[in-house]
Structure formats: C-alpha cells, structure tokens
Design a protein around this nucleic acid. Structure first.
Lengths: 171, 171
DNA sequence: TTACGTGCAAATAATTTGCAGTCCC
DNA sequence: GGGACTGCAAATTATTTGCACGTAA
C-alpha cells in the first residue's frame, strides 16, 4: 500500500482551488437522476425526510441537489445562496446542513482540514483529496475495494468505511 | 463541551473513553522499540529531524514517544504536560505538534470532528473510530488491504491513503 | 393557532499569530 | 551573540446558541 508521508498544512484559496485544480474530470459527477430534481421532488424529498419544506430549506436543497453531486462547506453554500438572491443567514445554513445530514440527505466528508465539507452523493464512493488545497473529487465505489477487513471489536459493528486517497502534485 | 448537540462525550471524556470503550485490544500498541526511547534517543531523534532539542520539545517528545503509540489532541498533551510539571503554553503545544508533524515524527489523523488528533505511530496502519465518541484505535496495516486502486488524475501522485473504519455500538 | 423554523448577534471552541523576552549552539 | 524558540495575550476562523419573531400545517 502507499506509504505514509506527512501532510504539510496551510491553505488559503479554498473555494477557488476546487475548480482551479482541474481534476473535476474525475468526479463521479452526474449520476442518472441526480440532477433532474425539480422543485416538487425536492419538496417531497424533504417531507419524506421528516423536514418541513420551508422556503429556506427548499432553496438550499435546490442548490444542493439541483446540479449533480457536490462537495460544499457552509460558507460556500451561503455565498451561493446570496448569489441566487436567497435570503438566508449563515447560521441557518449551518443548521440546515446538519439537519439534512441527520436526515440522511447529506454526508459529512472525513477531512483533516479546519472546515466541514458535505457531500450530496449518498452512494457508495470515496474521495480524492489534493493536499494543501482541500480540493475534493469523487472516486466511484467500484474503483476502490477492500481486500480484507479487520476483526471488529466485540459489541461494535461497522457503520461505514471512509477512504481518502491523498494526492499531491507530481514534481 | 466539544461539538454541540449530537456529539455526546465532551473533551473531558476523551482520554477516558479510549480505554473505557474496550477496544484497546485492537490497538497496534507496543511495537518493538516504540516505547523504549530514553532521553538521549529523543534528543537525537529531534536533531535528526532538524529540530533544536529545547526543553519544551524534549519534554513533549518524551510524553509523546515515551509510551508506545498514542493518539493525542493539543489539549490532551497540554494537560499531560501540566500534570508532569512541564511548563509549556498551549500555543507552544500546538506549534510543537505541527513542527513534529512537518518533520515526520507525527501524523495528523483524518477525522471529521472539531479537533485535530495526532498519531505517534508512523507505520502503515489505519484507524477504527467509534462514532459520537471520537475514540480511536489502530488497525495494523496488514489487517486492511486495498484490492484495487482508482486511476489517479494526470499530474498527481498518491501521497497516502487513509482509511477510517467507523464503528457504532451494536444494539 | 401553535409548534417548528429562522435571523441576528453574541457566545464558544479550536487554533494561529505578533512580538517581546529566552535559550541553545 | 545571534538567531531560533517560547510565552502570553490578542486575533482569527469555524461553528453553535439564545431568544424574539415569522410562517407552514
């Protein structure tokens, strides 16, 4: 397996780097049905999840689920909402992300950065992470398989296995 | 104390939980040579890493590497230093952890919690993580193998692969 | 109507930084 | 002695909370 190196820290251009890195071609991207989710579906989705379809939730869900798989931070979604002329507070964005997460509509991505990333892709998959840039992209579940599983301690069961393939720019 | 609503088990319970969980049996634990590191070795270790062996660094390194593999947060190490009558500021603990990390003596563990965990075990291995408790334990590298590796985007190479097996208490 | 949601601002948590003073080489 | 290191406190960043008000059922 790949040996351990260390992870230099620090970053600044977080949002910008996502697209600037040019690895978006690897994203699982458009799963069938993922992007074709009109309003009524979103409303139903929220209701099914036991969440009251308020204006803010509908708007945020629309931004989140309306265009394929996405990796967002609270700050990113907040900015996006502002650009789309949706009036929401940052606190509501945080709350909503966690509510969606708890309701099974989103998943928080395992990261060692300072910010929390959420993933709209709930299917079995993993992530590439470009070190120092916090640029994320999906690895389809089928592309990465475990050969063996360690013995699980008594009284516990496996909830999930998260795999992060850390990339570094080749010199 | 720590993460708000759905993260039971505050920071005070962190140290305790590690052993209370009863999964310490899975820890890689005492690799040969890992715990038998007297002062002079630590001094040499720091020097080899290009770090000036100051009193604080020696003391922190001693706490970190003196007793087998460990998973620590800055806060934990700070408390430990205080108990050992080592006078260091929390800021210095943070700085030192990152310096050690950059120097290849420590590794930051990939987590989605609010705190940064550092691992003194630099060998190839992965982690169990008990959800909602942030209790960590090692999985020996050999116990978990990848069957296939996805295509890496052009211009990048794999720095490391981190695998987190998330556990939940069985009902 | 009424309980659930939301906005705002203030609170908290984790971490970093600036700078004067300290200590290793 | 000089530059690397440290301590402290203040600054920053990320996130949560309390409470008055709004709004979907």
């Amino acid at each position: 397996m790949v040996g351990g190196q260390r992870l230099p820290g620090g970053s600044s251009a977080l949002v910008a780097s996502m697209s600037a890195v040019g690895i978006t071609n690897v994203r699982a991207g458009t799963r069938p049905g993922a992007e074709a989710a009109p309003w009524c579906n979103i409303k139903a989705k929220l209701r099914r999840a036991g969440l009251r379809p308020t204006r803010q939730r509908l708007a945020l869900a629309s931004l989140l689920f309306g265009r394929g798989d996405r990796h967002v931070t609270a700050e990113m979604l907040f900015q996006e909402a502002a650009q789309a002329n949706v009036r929401v507070s940052l606190a509501t964005v945080y709350n909503t992300l966690h509510q969606f997460s708890r309701a099974g509509l989103l998943r928080q991505i395992v990261m060692d950065g300072p910010k929390a990333y959420f993933d709209t892709n709930m299917t079995d998959h993993n992530h590439f992470l470009v070190e120092d840039e916090f640029a994320l992209s999906d690895i389809p579940g089928a592309a990465l398989r475990l050969e063996s599983m360690p013995a699980v301690p008594k009284g516990y069961e496996i909830a999930r296995v998260d795999i992060v393939v850390r990339l570094r720019r080749k010199v």
